[in-house]
């Protein structure tokens, strides 16, 4: 079998322990549920908490990531401010891809939620349902995405900011070029019968980005309505690009 590009091998090694992440987030949510009646979060609030905790894991992963860890904090912040929602959505989509079901969603905690349950949430729920449905559709249309491609795309998302916005142009450009080259090499060698899989994956990634922008706007709208729990990383990231 053809070799795996070194960049991808390194990224695979840096993948967080799923079981650990799951356990930590579950424990956090259970702590929320243990609170008194007046402090208890709504279902939507719990989902926000889940996203918030997943963000912590994402930041931890980024910190140890090749190239990223060489950057100054200023540049690291810019990269994460640019891509945090896309990373969250991408993580969610990949999970649905593995879950492989059209009418239910698998959460980071391992819980499965039926689409009908989501549809039954208090109004306005149509946007939630639309976003979730689209994420599942995106997952299903991308039925061939293996773990090597997943880690490489995740890294590309992390470094998807135009380098002109960063201090360390050289390092960021190097990261982008190496990751693109690795993905191209990998897809050409491992899926020789798939016409131009590399370009298809990048086009698909653009759709993931579009969905994440939509989800962010929706979340911001919910925040202005006072429905998103405050004082957390999620809110901070939401505000980072909006003065």
């Amino acid at each position: 079998p053809p070799d795996i590009p070194e960049v991808i091998l390194k990224l695979l090694q840096l993948e967080p322990d799923e079981a650990q992440v799951k356990a930590r987030i579950l424990a956090c949510l259970q702590q929320e549920q243990g609170k008194g009646r007046h402090e208890k979060l709504s279902t939507f609030g719990l989902m926000c908490k889940m996203a918030d905790q997943t963000l912590f894991s994402i930041v931890e992963w980024a910190r140890s990531c090749i190239f990223f860890k060489e950057l100054e904090v200023g540049d690291q912040m810019k990269l994460l401010q640019n891509c945090w929602s896309e990373l969250l959505v991408f993580d969610h989509i990949y999970r649905q891809l593995q879950h492989g079901k059209e009418h239910s969603v698998l959460l980071v905690t391992g819980q499965e939620v039926d689409m009908s349950t989501i549809a039954a949430q208090p109004a306005p729920s149509s946007n939630t349902l639309c976003c979730v449905r689209r994420s599942v559709v995106l997952a299903l249309t991308r039925s061939r995405l293996d773990r090597h491609e997943f880690v490489c795309l995740k890294f590309l998302i992390l470094f998807s900011l135009d380098v002109k916005y960063l201090e360390n142009h050289t390092l960021a450009k190097d990261a982008q070029e190496k990751a693109n080259a690795a993905l191209l090499e990998y897809t050409v060698c491992h899926y020789p019968h798939s016409t131009d899989k590399f370009r298809q994956l990048l086009l698909w990634l653009a759709e993931v980005r579009a969905l994440s922008m939509q989800a962010e706007e929706y979340l911001y709208h919910k925040h202005l309505s006072g429905e998103v729990p405050c004082n957390n990383l999620l809110i901070e990231m939401l505000h980072a690009k909006r003065t």
Partner: peptide
Amino acid sequence: KKNNNALLRYLLDKDDTK
């Protein structure tokens, strides 16, 4: 008050404790 993303900065800056 402009958001300076203090929590993110802290998470990126902090030392790992074993």
